[in-house]
Design a binder for these strands. Structure first.
Ligand SMILES: [Zn+2]
Ligand SMILES: [Zn+2]
Ligand SMILES: [Zn+2]
Ligand SMILES: [Zn+2]
Lengths: 158, 158
DNA sequence: GGAGATTAGGTTATAATGTTGCAATTCTAC
DNA sequence: GTAGAATTGCAACATTATAACCTAATCTCC
C-alpha cells in the first residue's frame, strides 16, 4: 500500500510531490507539462476525491485558463497517457495516481459516503489477468478494479 | 469459469436459459418480468457484446414498444437490481450475467477488437476486497473488475 | 369485486459527459 | 530562419443518463 488516505497527513505534500514526479516523468519521456496540464494535475490532486472533468472547467476559468471541454479532456488524456492520473469509470471521474512511472493496473476503493478514494496496490489483480490468459487464451492489456463501500471514517460516523 | 464465449455454441440456448432463469428469479423475489423487461433482457443477450442503452431504443421501437430513454433505463435498472445484467462502466454498456441469483462481483474480460465480453469467475477479486478491509479498515459493498485486451480469435486474425 | 395503495410505464424536457473538425499558435529540430 | 510537429482555441455536436410529472396497470385487503 503506497499511501493511506485515512491517516492524517499534510496534503500539500501530496500535491507538491505529485507535481514534481510529473515534471520528472515528463522530462524523462520528452513530454511537455504545459501550464494547463500542470494546473489540471494540481486540481485533480486538490483532495483525494475523484473529480469530474466538468468540475474542473469553472476552476480553470477562474484562473484565466481557457475552459472549454476539449481543453480539460485533452489535459486529462495527456495525464492518463503518462499514468499520472487514473479514471474511475464508475464515477466518470479522475484521480491522481499515487505511484506514477511504474505501469500498473488501476485499482481503487471508493467510499460511497464521503467520496474519497484510496489507490490499492493489489497484486491479485495481476493474478486475475494471468489466470484469464491461461484459461481462456486472451491477452490482457489493461485492467481496472473498483471497490465501493464505506471508509473507516464514514463507518465510525454511522 | 461458468461459460466460455470463445467456444462455438448454440447461442439460442444462451438467450433461452437467460430468460428462464430470469423468470424463476423474478418469481422467487416477487418481481415482475414485464414484456419490456423481458425483451430488454433478450436484446442484451442478443450476442456476447456489451450493448449501450441507446442501441436498444431503435430495436424496441421496431417492435412497437415504447422507446424513450427512461423506458430502457428503467428496464436495465430493474435487471441490474436483480443481478440479471452487469454494467461495463468503461464502455457505458450492459451485458447479461452468466450466473444470476448468486451475488458476485462484476468481473469481465472485454476484447478491444471485436467487443465480445467474457464474464470471469474470479475469486481473487474477493481476496482484494478482504485484503483492503483488513489493511485499511474499509467495508467493501460492491466490486467490479474490467480487463481489456485481445480475445483468442482476434489475436489469431492479427 | 371495489377502494386505496403500490408499481410500472408514457412523455417531455433537460442535465451530464465526452468528441470532432478545423484554424491559429507555439515549440522543436535542422 | 524555416519546415514539420505538437499544442491550444473555438464552435458545434454527439452520447449517455436523469428529472419531473402524470396516467395506467396491478396488487392487497376487506
Ligand atoms: Zn493527501
Ligand atoms: Zn496508480
Ligand atoms: Zn452465446
Ligand atoms: Zn455475473
Amino acid at each position: 500500500m503506497t499511501q493511506n488516505v485515512y491517516k492524517a497527513h499534510d496534503h500539500h505534500v501530496c500535491i507538491d510531490s505529485a507535481v514534481s514526479r510529473a515534471r520528472a516523468l515528463c522530462e524523462e519521456q520528452g513530454a511537455r507539462l504545459t501550464p494547463v496540464r500542470q494546473r489540471v494535475l494540481e486540481l485533480v490532486w486538490a483532495n483525494h476525491k475523484p473529480v469530474g472533468a466538468y468540475d474542473l472547467l469553472p476552476k480553470l476559468a477562474e484562473e484565466g485558463f481557457n475552459s472549454a471541454p476539449p481543453t480539460v479532456y485533452r489535459a486529462l488524456d495527456f495525464l492518463l497517457d503518462l499514468g499520472l492520473v487514473h479514471r474511475i469509470s464508475s464515477l466518470n471521474a479522475f484521480i491522481g495516481c499515487t505511484h506514477p512511472g511504474e505501469a500498473h493496473p488501476s485499482c481503487f476503493f471508493v467510499c460511497r459516503e464521503c467520496g474519497e478514494a484510496q489507490e490499492l496496490d493489489a497484486e491479485q489483480v495481476n493474478t486475475i489477468a494471468r489466470q484469464a490468459e491461461a484459461m481462456l487464451g486472451v491477452k490482457v492489456e489493461q485492467q481496472m478494479t473498483e471497490l465501493m463501500g464505506l471508509c473507516p471514517r464514514c463507518q465510525a460516523s454511522a
